[in-house]
Structures are given as C-alpha cells and as structure tokens.
Design a binder for these strands. Sequence first.
DNA 1: GACCACTGGTTTTTT
DNA 2: ACCAGTGGTC
Length: 730
Amino acid sequence: MSDLLANLNPPQLAAVTLPPQHALILAGAGSGKTRVLTTRIAWLLSTGQVAPSGVLAVTFTNKAAKEMQARLSAMLPVNVRAMWIGTFHGLCNRLLRAHHKEAGLPALFQILDSGDQQAAVKRMLKNLNVDDEKFPPRELCHFFNAHKEQGVRAAQAEVYDDYTRRRVELYAEYEAQCQREGVVDFAELLLRTYELLSRNEPLRQHYQRRFRHILVDEFQDTNVLQYKWLKLLADHGAEDGAKLFAVGDDDQSIYRFRGAEVGNMRDFEREFRVDSVIRLEQNYRSHGNILEAANAIIKHNRGRLGKNLWTDAGAGEPIRVFEGFSDLDEARFIVDETRELIRDGVPRSQIALLYRSNAQSRVLEHQLFTAGVPYRVYGGLRFFERQEIKHALAYLRLIANPDDDTAFARVVNFPARGIGARSQEHLQAAAHQANSSLYNAAASLSGKAGASVGAFVRLIEELRRDTANLPLPEMVEHVVEVSGLRRHYLGEKEGQERLDNLDELINAAVNFVQEESGGDLAAREEAGDLAAFLAHASLEAGEHQAGEGEEALQLMTVHAAKGLEFDVVFLSGLEQGLFPHENAAAEREGLEEERRLMYVAVTRARQRLYLSWAQTRMLHGQTRYCVASSFFDEIPGELLRRINPVAKPVYEAPRAGGRGGAARSSSASAADAAGLPNGLRIGMNVQHAKFGLGVIIAAEGRGADARVQVNFMDAGMKWLALEYARLTPA
DNA sequence: GACCACTGGTTTTTT
DNA sequence: ACCAGTGGTC
C-alpha cells in the first residue's frame, strides 16, 4: 500500500487518503487528476474501508471509464468487475436492463442515438401532419433533451407561448411514441433511471445501501439531471449515505452548450456541506511560460472557484506567435515548422494542430497533404454511425424488438425491394390507426399493399428464426448476407469501404463476445448478447477506428483535445470572431466559456506552444478580414515571441519534387495506384491552357479514367480528366 | 429508383 | 467552399 501512495504530492495524498466524507477536488490541468481518482479507489479498497461492490465510479466517456478500469486492475489484484465503473449512460443502461419491468420498459428496449432520435421525431411529425419547417426536428430534439436533462417531463413543462405549447404537446407525443416502440433516447436513459429510483423505495434503498463511495470524474461537466441522480444515489442528507468524491475543474468547463452546469460544483459544495475542498495546483505537464500564460488568461473570468497552477519545471521557451497574411500562409508556416520539428526528432504524434472549429482543418490538411506529412484528423463520422452499419444494426434491432419503428423505417426498403414512399405511407396510416407498430401493421396487412411488404415481414421472421440459436458474430454475418446488404454494396461503385466496414462489424461482434469487461457483462446476462451488443453500439459509437497512436500529426478541435497532452501544440485561427467565436462573444457567459476553451488549449502543451492567426481567412466561401484574438491581450507580452512573417507572396505554389514516399493520410485517394502518363507525378507543377499554373496533389483511376486533382494558383482546386485536360509539366 | 440540380446551413460533442 | 437533404425528371 505504501507503494500506492508513493510519489504523491501533499494535496494529492490528502485527497487520496481523505476519511470517508463528501469531498470536492479541484484538479487543475495536468495535476494528476486521474491518478488521484484511481488511487483513491485503490486506497479505499486496500485499507478495507469498502468492498469492491460498494464502489461506484462515474465518468463521461467510455474512454475514461476504460482507462480507470485498466489503471485499477494494474494497481490492485482486485476484482474490478465487482465495482461499477462506467459512464452515466452506461450505468443507467445497466440499471434499466436489470429492472426493466419496474421501469416500464420491455426487456429488450433499444437505445436511440441522436441520429435515430431525429429520425423518430421526423417520422412523428409526418404522422401528425406537422410542418417540419415550423418545427425542425433538430430543434425539437434539442427542446426535448433540454427538458429531460432538467428532469422535466412534458406534463410539467412550462408553457409561455403558443409555439411552446405546441412543442410541449409534441414532447408528450414523442414520449408516448418512444414508449409504444420500446425505445429510449440518451437523455431518457438518465431520466428513466432517476424516476425509477426516486419512485421505487425498496430499489432505491437497495442501491443506496450498496454504494458506499461514489466517485465522479469531470464533475464540472455534469448537467442538472446528472447531479440530481447523484444526489439521489448518494442518499443526500442522510447520515449513512454514500460519500461523494467529486473531481473537476471549473476552469475546464467547456460544454455549457450541451447542458453542462458548472454551477453544480458550487451547489455540491454547499448542499453536501463539503468542508474539504482540495486543490491540486501543481502541474506536471507544462513548462512555466505556458502555465503562466494559461493562468493569466483564465484570471479574466469571474466567479471562479479559484486555483493557480504552478510548476517546478523551468520557464522553458517563450510562446511563439505567428501572424499570417492569410489562412493559407498560416497553414504553410505551421506545416514548415512541423517538418522542422520532425526533422529535429519530435515524434509526429507529439505534435498537435488545434483549432476552434472543424472547418479550419481543411486548409491545414491541404498543406500537410502537399508536403507529404502524415496526419490524422480526429472527429467526424464514427464507426457505429456509418450508414451501412446502422442499416445492419437496424435489421438486428428488428429481430430483437419488432416494435422499433425507427429500425423498421430504416430498412423496410433498403436494399430497395419495391416498398416505396406510398406503401410506407400506407403502413404509417395503418399503424397509426391500429395504434400498433409499423411491423405489426405490415404483418397484418395482407394482399393490399402487395407481396413486397409481406416478403419483408417474412424476411425478418426468417432472420429471427434462423439466427435464434446462432452465436452473436454468426448472427451478424447471417443478417448481413440474407438481408441483401452485402449484395447491395457489392454492386455499388464505392461500396468496398462499406463492405469492409460490414466485415468490421462482424469483427466487433467477435470482440464483444470475447471481451470480459464488467459493465457489459452484467448487461449481457440481463438481456442476452444481441441486446447488449446493440446497446453497446449505441452507447459507444466507436472510437475512431484504426490508426490510433500512429506516427502522424494530430489534428483536432480544442474540444476534442481536452484531457490530452502534447510536446508541441499549434493553436491556429486566433482571430476575433473565430476564437473567441462570434456566436459566443456577445454575453459574458459565452465569452468566459471561450476563455476556458482557450485555457484548455494552452494547457495541452508540454514544451512548446505556437499561437497563430491570419489577416484574411476564407470562411463559407468568402474572404474575411480578421483582427487578432482578444486573448492575445490577456497574455503578458514578455511570455511571447513574435515570429515576423517572412515577406512572401500571398499565394505561392508549393515546391515540387524531393519528397519520395510521401505518406498519406486517411483522406488520400489511391494516388500511387494510378497510372500517370506523360511523366506526371504528384507534387509536380503543371501548366493548363485555361487554368494556368498549378500543382498536382492527387490522382485516381487509370487509362481513360485517370483523373488528377490540381491546385491552381488562380483557379483553385480542380479534378481533371487526363484524357481531355492538356497538362504539361511546368 | 437513379440521377441531377437546387437549397440552406454551416461552434464546439458525448452518450 | 462544402455538405447534406430535397424535389424534380427520366
């Protein structure tokens, strides 16, 4: 055990060994937060203060939950599976599976992800003949979710105008539809669990007695309902309730826009009479100058709980500031600089290019691509959100729960089987009238709408029958084959990647069955492999596939970078209106969140930080003239070193040649597979009769189909068919 | 049902 | 600039 506590600094040690009581740990960036959290659990267990089954640890992401689990099992020879470690949503799923009857749900209830939810709302509006221009599904979803996240049902929702009255009616209708279909959305998982526990006293007492220690990570990100949920489980107010150990950093609260309530930290301190607020202020990550800049920035925010990071590492290098003529110029500077760093031996994966919004990645990607620097962009479509995967899952969902209309609507005519819009409307009407599911309507509809509907019903029934005794992976495979999905994508031009993904889904099923992870296992015992796998697919949309940790530059938004650290960080686009973002700058609350975001960005860097901005930037197809971000003014000048922009023309074609074996990113086309005639190569400067001078940056196809992508100085990016375009080396 | 032209909307994102 | 979604035509 002394091993356990070795090398903790005094506040860390104090936090870890706090006697059982409610505690708030203010953990600054890079202060060893996760370590404290896991060591706390290990300490509680190894000193016999709690049994594994008495521990509940809550995180926001699956990644964080997994990391905690991994670290704990490395620390202690303890049965990690007896502990409940997971995300709010994962834990709620587990509770609802175990007590679905009491919660009023079918055993195989399905989970709607945000996309499913929107589709469900859309379908509802169509059913009710509501104009989806007046009530956009996106906005309605937000309205419903916001209410649920406050713990407010339609029946209690406040109505202050006619428009909202209608929205609340739709909210009630949506609740009824979900109930009828046996599906729950993300917010519902939490609200339903909350209601279950607050209404069912024996159940509540059971869990209140069971969990002696509740530990919450990233507490600043909790929303109103999550905090209520924690209060309920911790038996707030009772002497013998669980002890709540909350770890968070109000300065890193950057999710207000999705309902996070920083105020929960203050409320927690007050309502739980926390008299032990421990501050972790020693930073083990960044050099002094970087930290000093971060402190200087965040000082401008009001109402902080208060914290000042320090380090005993040296001041380190000054922060480099670059001012570009244009976004292109800025990108070129960044890429040149990264190449130099790489040459000097900095691993590519230790260099991060951060930006405020995703759209900014494009210009960086272009430059990286032409320079042949391998890079990886985080964010974007995730595995379980891909259409082919969602299609396959929809078939599986229909097998598990035929009432799932969202799944039905998704695949009733995919692959196309002659059940067009009209037949589907027919089914909708019939289902609406009979107050039944689409599937039921389809099953009882004989003759009229033709044989195709009947064939679909038979297909699903056949699938259900034939897969009933198959192990999960074979079940998935069978469905992919028999549903016609594989055949469909085989016939599609760009279908190979989708086919690969379907194979990957079968793989995922294999892994899922093999994996012995705690939470999933319990859920599996409750509901069986299929339902558990489907829940897993919804709750864990899938970490961005292969290539993780590959030797590539890391491109991501500042939001996505939270929790990560890099030797070198480039923060680009520091312009008024972009960062801080114009939509946020109007009110103090918004600006302060932007500032916290800036604080998060700066504290990602260990050794070197670049801040850059551009005088002009292409945004939404138009050139914007920019002013440097006000955040520059908040950093003491002596920490900064301006790098004078070298006088370069605003546009200069990238140099050709000299970079053999250019590594490519995920976005690259099959350039090296293309046969380029006339001695043309990627990276070469070329001349075109109409478009002028440009650089070949990509190629695809061969022979008569060969096409190249050329970045022209004046005409911009173009794809040209080599058969017609007369390109000559320039 | 496939293809194409037009439109609107573009901060951040997990579950 | 660029994407997704839609509505029209063949």
